[in-house]
Amino acid sequence: MVEFRPFVSKAPLALLAGLLVVGCAENKMHADGATSSSVSRNFVENLVLPSYRLLAEESGALEEALQTLANNPTDAHLAAARQQWVETRPLWEITESWAFGPAETEGLDGDLDDWPVSVLELKQAFATDPFTADTFSRLGTTSIGFHGIEFVLYGDGQRAADLTPQQTAYLALAGAAFHDTAEQLLSSWTGADGFGAELMGDPDGTVLEMIEGAIGTLEEVHLEKLGAVLEEGPEVLESRFSGTTNTDIVFNMVGAQRVFEDTGLKQLLTAKDAGLAEQLSESLAIGLSAAEAMPSMLSQRLDDPAVVESMETAIEATESTFNLMTRALETLDSF
């Protein structure tokens, strides 16, 4: 029997709890009179910036864990590096609904999270001796970031004794590059000249961009992260080596929900169409529940009808939410 439980570490949940509490507090503050200015400020100051601070902090811990493993490749250090990868991963996935601006224009999204991983390119690179910083610099985005690191940590039932000098050199370089990119992302949104300030200077445009960001996440989930897998097979699963695709999707849904529920955006929509606002709120909750019902290790379970059914349920729920979010965009863009 399949156990329908998401593979979610307690640590990122604890870290995110503080972020979400802040969002809920601000949501209540603006519930009676949300404006585009209050929504955009709440979005930047109480959702985006705290999330990127957490990501930068945990990416530093990931860099350290990978460097430790590279210096001394033991099973204990491999387990610690895997655990830190799992701790860091949701802190990025929750931000996908606001992966616009510098994440897109400066290529930071791709450097952190391009997929599916290029297994062939990595294997070819690991055949070079020695593996140097120059070797690493020539890799494409599908060979670095979360998924390149994931492949080396988890691929082919990896044990510490199996790690080659090329792979340990890669892990040290990839960890440092990942941390640097996360720091760049935070910096790009911060301060008077940052993208966050730019957004708050155009609150009406920001409200629409917030909705478009959530729409993009919902579309990617139902079409690419799940739909494409049922059509093409496990090779296109996003986090297939660690078996945590389900957790990715849980936090994608949490991020979209936070944009709507915890910034005052729901109140803005309620003022224009209360019925649509309530429908969307309920649909986001249903979509999140459907994501939470999917099991881990999807790549090994696609021949199980119960697992496929759980994925199809999540696709249907997410697509429905996508359609409602699109209507919300049209409603708010028409005033």
Rank of each mutant, 00 (worst) to 15 (best):
E45M: 07
I249S: 08
G33C: 07
K123V: 05
T321L: 06
L230E: 03
P165I: 04
G157F: 04
L108Y: 15
V307P: 03
K272F: 10
L288S: 10
G140C: 05
V259G: 12
A103P: 04
A125N: 09
T318G: 10
D204F: 15
S296R: 13
T331H: 09
I249T: 06
D109P: 13
R82H: 13
T244P: 07
E209L: 14
P203D: 05
R258T: 05
Y170W: 01
L20P: 04
G148E: 00
R138F: 03
T68M: 11
D109N: 13
F260N: 09
G145Q: 03
H147S: 02
N46G: 15
E278R: 08
M1Y: 00
L208Q: 04
L284D: 00
I315R: 10
S310C: 12
F322L: 14
E104T: 12
T313A: 15
L69E: 02
T217I: 11
V39C: 13
P130Q: 04
R53I: 00
F146M: 01
K272S: 14
T128R: 03
L223F: 09
L19S: 04
I149D: 00
T95N: 12
D273V: 00
L163V: 06
V259F: 15
L276I: 02
L284Y: 05
S187N: 11
L268Q: 10
W115Y: 13
E93A: 14
S37M: 09
G205W: 09
R301N: 12
F195I: 10
L78D: 01
R301M: 15
A228N: 11
M1T: 03
P305I: 01
K123N: 10
M294K: 04
F178A: 01
M1Q: 01
S310E: 07
P295F: 08
V308T: 01
I215P: 09
F151K: 08
E104M: 15
M297T: 05
A174C: 05
M325N: 06
F322H: 15
L208S: 06
C24P: 10
A176H: 05
N27R: 15
I286Y: 12
T105F: 12
Q158S: 06
D262E: 08
N46L: 14
T135E: 04
E93H: 10
L122S: 02
G213L: 13
T190K: 14
A99K: 06
A177V: 11
N46M: 12
M297N: 15
K10F: 15
S59K: 00
A76Y: 11
S37P: 03
V39H: 14
G107V: 06
D114P: 05
R5F: 15
S334I: 08
G213S: 06
F241R: 13
A182H: 01
